[in-house]
C-alpha cells in the first residue's frame, strides 16, 4: 500500500509540474502576442512546458516535489530555493496577464468621470413623479420573490431528507437516491438564477412569471442543500430513541428529525426570501419582470432621473428586508 501511495504522489507531482510550466509558457506566449505581435504556436508552448517541467522534476527542485513529495530541505527560506522563485514568477506573470486581459486603464477611471454625470445627477435628483409606477413594479418583484420562496419550501423540505447522509441507509438504494438528489441539487444550484431567467423568459415569455420560476428552481436547489446540512447536524440520540420504540421510518423522521430542524429551517427560509428579493431585481434585467425590467427600460431610454428613483427604491427595500430578516432570525435562534 505504501508503494502504491508513493507512485500516486509521484504522478501527482509530475502532473503538477507539467501543468505549472505549460501555464507559464502559455502566459508568456499571450504576452508576446499582446505586446510584440509575435505568434508562438500552441504546440511549442506545450512542448516547452513539458520539457522544462520534466527537467525541474528530475533535478528535484520543482514545485510538484515540494507539494507532494517533501524531499527538498524545508529549512531553507523560499527565496533561496528554485521552487520559491518559480511560485513567485507564476504569481507575477498571472497578475500581468490579468491586468492586460481585463484592460485595466487608470486614466479612464479618473479622467472620464464626466461620463457618469447623467446617472449621478439622476441619483441625487430622482424623479418622484414615477413613484407610484415604481411601487407597482416593486410589488411585482417582492411578490415574485415571495412566491418563488413559498413554492420552493415544500419541495426542498421533502428533498432535503433524501439528501441527508445520516438518514439515507448505506444500501444500494439509499446511496443511489442520496447521490442523485445531491448531484441534481448541486448542478441546479451552480447554474445562476439569471441563466434560469433567460431560459424561462423564452419558455413562458418575458414577465414576472419567468422570474418567479427562475428563482424557484434556484431556491429549491439551494434550500435542499442548506436543509439537508441541517439534518446532518441533528442530535442522533432522539432518532435512536424513537426508532427503539418501534416507530416506522416515516414516524421517526416526523417525531425525531422534524422538531430538531424546524427553527433553523425557518431561519434559512427567511434568509432565502431576502436573497430572492435581491436576485429578483437582477433577474428582471433579463426578462424576469418587476423593478429590474423597469430599470433596464429607463436606462436604455437614458432617463437618468427615473433610474435614480428606481435605484433609491431598490436600495431602501433591500435595506428593510435585510433588517427584518436579521431580526426574525435572531428571534428564531432564541426559540
Amino acid at each position: 500500500m505504501k508503494k502504491e501511495n508513493k507512485l500516486k504522489l509521484n504522478i501527482q507531482a509530475i502532473l503538477t509540474d507539467l501543468l505549472f510550466w505549460i501555464y507559464i509558457f502559455g502566459c508568456a506566449s499571450f504576452l508576446m502576442n499582446h505586446w510584440f505581435e509575435k505568434v508562438i504556436p500552441n504546440n511549442f508552448v506545450v512542448i516547452f512546458g513539458i520539457v522544462v517541467g520534466l527537467i525541474t522534476f528530475i533535478l528535484g527542485i520543482s514545485v510538484g516535489r515540494k507539494v507532494f513529495l517533501p524531499t527538498i530541505k524545508t529549512d531553507r527560506k523560499w527565496h533561496k530555493t528554485f521552487w520559491g522563485w518559480s511560485v513567485f514568477f507564476i504569481l507575477l506573470i498571472t497578475f500581468v496577464v490579468g491586468w492586460n486581459l481585463v484592460e485595466v486603464d487608470l486614466y479612464k477611471l479618473f479622467a472620464k468621470f464626466r461620463n457618469a454625470g447623467g446617472i449621478m445627477g439622476g441619483i441625487f435628483n430622482p424623479n418622484t413623479d414615477i413613484f407610484v409606477l415604481c411601487l407597482s413594479a416593486l410589488a411585482e418583484t417582492i411578490y415574485l420573490a415571495l412566491l418563488a420562496t413559498v413554492f420552493a419550501i415544500p419541495l426542498a423540505f421533502i428533498l432535503s431528507f433524501f439528501a441527508a447522509r445520516n438518514l439515507m441507509p448505506r444500501t444500494f438504494l439509499g446511496n443511489t437516491v442520496y447521490i442523485i438528489v445531491r448531484t441534481i441539487a448541486t448542478v441546479f444550484r451552480s447554474i445562476e438564477a439569471i441563466v434560469w431567467a433567460i431560459i424561462f423568459s423564452v419558455w413562458v415569455g418575458i414577465g414576472p412569471f419567468a422570474g418567479m420560476l427562475a428563482l424557484m428552481i434556484h431556491s429549491i436547489a439551494s434550500l435542499t442543500k442548506l436543509y439537508s446540512e441541517q439534518i446532518e447536524n441533528i442530535d442522533p440520540g432522539p432518532v435512536e430513541a424513537i426508532k427503539a420504540t418501534g416507530a416506522s421510518t416515516l414516524q421517526t423522521w416526523i417525531f425525531a428529525v422534524v422538531p430538531q430542524i424546524i427553527s433553523p429551517y425557518l431561519a434559512f427560509t427567511i434568509y432565502r426570501w431576502d436573497i430572492n428579493v435581491r436576485m429578483a431585481t437582477i433577474v428582471g434585467f433579463v426578462g424576469g419582470g418587476g423593478i429590474g425590467l423597469l430599470l433596464l427600460q429607463q436606462q436604455q431610454l437614458l432617463r437618468w432621473q427615473n433610474v435614480g428613483m428606481i435605484i433609491w427604491l431598490i436600495a431602501i427595500v433591500v435595506w428593510i428586508m435585510d433588517m427584518v430578516s436579521a431580526k426574525v432570525r435572531e428571534k428564531l435562534q432564541e426559540m
Partner: peptide, 16 residues
Amino acid sequence: RRKIAMIFQQFNLIRN
C-alpha cells in the same frame, strides 16, 4: 421493538 423499551445516558428526548 415496542416490547423492548430503551433508556439512554443522554435521555434522548426531543427537546423542543
